[in-house]
Design a protein around this nucleic acid. Structure first.
Lengths: 102, 102
DNA sequence: CAGGCAGTTCGATACTCATCGAACCAGCGC
DNA sequence: GCGCTGGTTCGATGAGTATCGAACTGCCTG
């Protein structure tokens, strides 16, 4: 298992935007933003286990999240500082927006 | 020809992020940001005419750009104010980032 | 050790979408 | 009117990806 996540300098804007440009992942990011680090499975995003895993992987590989393995659990958190360093204001701008404008 | 573009209130974050999450469109947005309103065809983005048209359409329908028809030309501009009103700081954050991190 | 649980991976499916060339449409100039 | 030129639309194609269930892996506990 590679819990690899890209270095801050390697973060690619297009990739990050693509990662954020999905309703499910955006929801995940919001959850992480408000709830802090969370266990992967504790989040209810309305998709199957495998799909959820896929989205977490996408976010991680885009450099949006960090994953910490602890026993059988994976603790996922936002890489706020790294994102802020690489794309100042971007994450805040995304998070400030209302979740779902109906 | 519908030069329809969504109202400010209808702008959807996911849609905008998806629109921005493409290298070609990101390039277009940058060009518009630095050069102001431009004629559609005057922009060199490295894709065919039809593909370029498609990207302009995507950006327009996402609410990122405005299109003004003048004779046979289409003048395209960024909807900076609308985007700023709906997603404060987002566009700036995107534009501030270096174009292509090698 | 056996079982269960967390999470990933696999294989398949369906859908989206970026891309192109060609055909088409609409002004503009001759 | 005839054609050129800017731009859109069409149809096709290929790549990417979101989704699922099922099989697998690893850890922890009884």
């Amino acid at each position: 298992m590679d819990v690899f996540q890209p270095a801050t300098a390697d973060l690619d804007l297009t990739t990050v935007l693509q990662a954020l440009g999905d309703p499910v992942r955006l929801k995940i990011v919001r959850e992480l933003a408000t709830g802090g680090e969370q266990v992967c499975g504790a989040m209810e995003v309305g998709v199957s286990k495998s799909t959820r895993s896929h989205h977490f992987k996408t976010l991680r590989e885009a450099g949006v999240t960090a994953t910490r393995v602890e026993g059988t659990h994976r603790h996922v958190s936002l890489r706020r500082d790294d994102l802020e360093a690489r794309f100042p204001g971007l994450l805040d701008a995304v998070l400030q927006t209302q979740a779902a404008p109906a």
